Simulated assay, not measured.
Amino acid sequence: MSQTPAKARKPYPLNFFILVTLISILLAIWYVTDYLRGHQAGNVTWYPATAECQLPDETCHATLDKGQTLSFTLHTPEPRPLEPLPVTVRLEGFSEDELRRLKLEIDLQGRDMYMGYNRTPMQYQGEGVFSATPLLSLCTDEMMVWRASILINPTGMNLKSFYGSYFDFTVYR
């Protein structure tokens, strides 16, 4: 006589709770990315570059409020994905006290393609110079135009007071 064991069944409520948990996680991820994208673009006063410039061959400039200027330099002759990208920003027209209070970040995005959250804080080096070494995300295209957005927060805390400029450059894989 052979007995077949009763087939073990997972209780129905467990499958339902797994499904509800997965849907909740997906909604949370969607909400966070939508929230970050809204704060990234909507609350920033942008100042355009003063003239066409060819990064990384040239230093690019933008005129900010009250005659203040921002200069942006890429220190890599041929930027590549997943390699360090040393950059500097020089601010002129600010007092030393103002410069110490500023919080600068560089945000690297595809100009025509959202590449996720890729924002790096910049460190104050003195005499109006800020630096950072972010990484470019990997892209499957042979050529991609990237946008380096320099975000300046004068108080270091208030999201509504961001201003800055952006500069485009081309990366070949």
Rank of each mutant, 00 (worst) to 15 (best):
Y31G: 05
N15F: 07
Q54P: 00
A51I: 09
A62Q: 05
E52Y: 14
E58T: 14
Q40W: 11
E52N: 14
R37T: 00
D34W: 13
S24Q: 07
A51Y: 02
K66Y: 10
Y35R: 11
L14N: 06
I25G: 10
L22Y: 07
L27S: 06
T21Q: 03
Y35W: 13
E58C: 06
K66C: 06
L27W: 00
I29S: 08
H61L: 13
A62W: 04
R37I: 00
I29H: 02
W46T: 12
C60G: 03
H61S: 14
V32T: 09
P13N: 12
D65T: 05
N43E: 09
D34K: 15
D34M: 08
L22M: 14
W46Y: 15
L22H: 04
T59K: 02
A41P: 00
P13M: 09
Q54W: 02
G42F: 10
T69V: 05
N43Q: 14
T21G: 11
I18P: 03
F16I: 15
H75M: 05
P11M: 08
I29M: 08
Q40F: 09
D34Q: 13
V44L: 13
N15D: 07
I18H: 07
I18E: 13
L19Q: 08
A62I: 07
T33L: 09
G67L: 13
L26C: 13
V20S: 14
L70P: 03
A28W: 09
A49W: 00
L70R: 01
L70M: 04
R37N: 00
N15R: 06
L64M: 07
Q40R: 15
P56Q: 03
T59G: 01
F16S: 15
G42R: 13
V32I: 14
H61V: 12
N43V: 13
V32K: 14
F72P: 03
V32Y: 11
E58N: 12
L27A: 10
T59E: 04
Q40D: 03
E52L: 15
V20M: 14
T50H: 04
T45L: 10
L70H: 02
T63L: 13
K66V: 09
L70Q: 02
V44F: 05
G42E: 10
K10L: 15
Q68L: 03
A62T: 05
C53M: 01
F72A: 03
C53S: 08
F17D: 05
A51E: 08
C60S: 05
F17A: 15
R9E: 14
Y12K: 10
C60V: 08
R37D: 00
Y47E: 04
L70T: 01
A41K: 11
F72G: 03
G42M: 11
V20P: 07
T59V: 10
H75L: 07
K10Q: 15
V44R: 12
H75Q: 07
L55F: 02
L27Y: 01
N15T: 04
L27H: 00
L26Q: 14
I29R: 06
P11D: 08
L19C: 09
V32H: 08
L19A: 15
K10C: 13
L26D: 12
L55M: 05
H75F: 06
E58I: 08
P11H: 11
G67V: 09
T69S: 04
S71H: 01
L26A: 15
A49H: 00
Y31P: 01
T73D: 02
Y47P: 08
F16L: 15
G42K: 15
T63K: 12
L55W: 02
V20W: 06
W30Y: 10
H75G: 03
G38A: 12
Q40N: 08
P13Q: 11
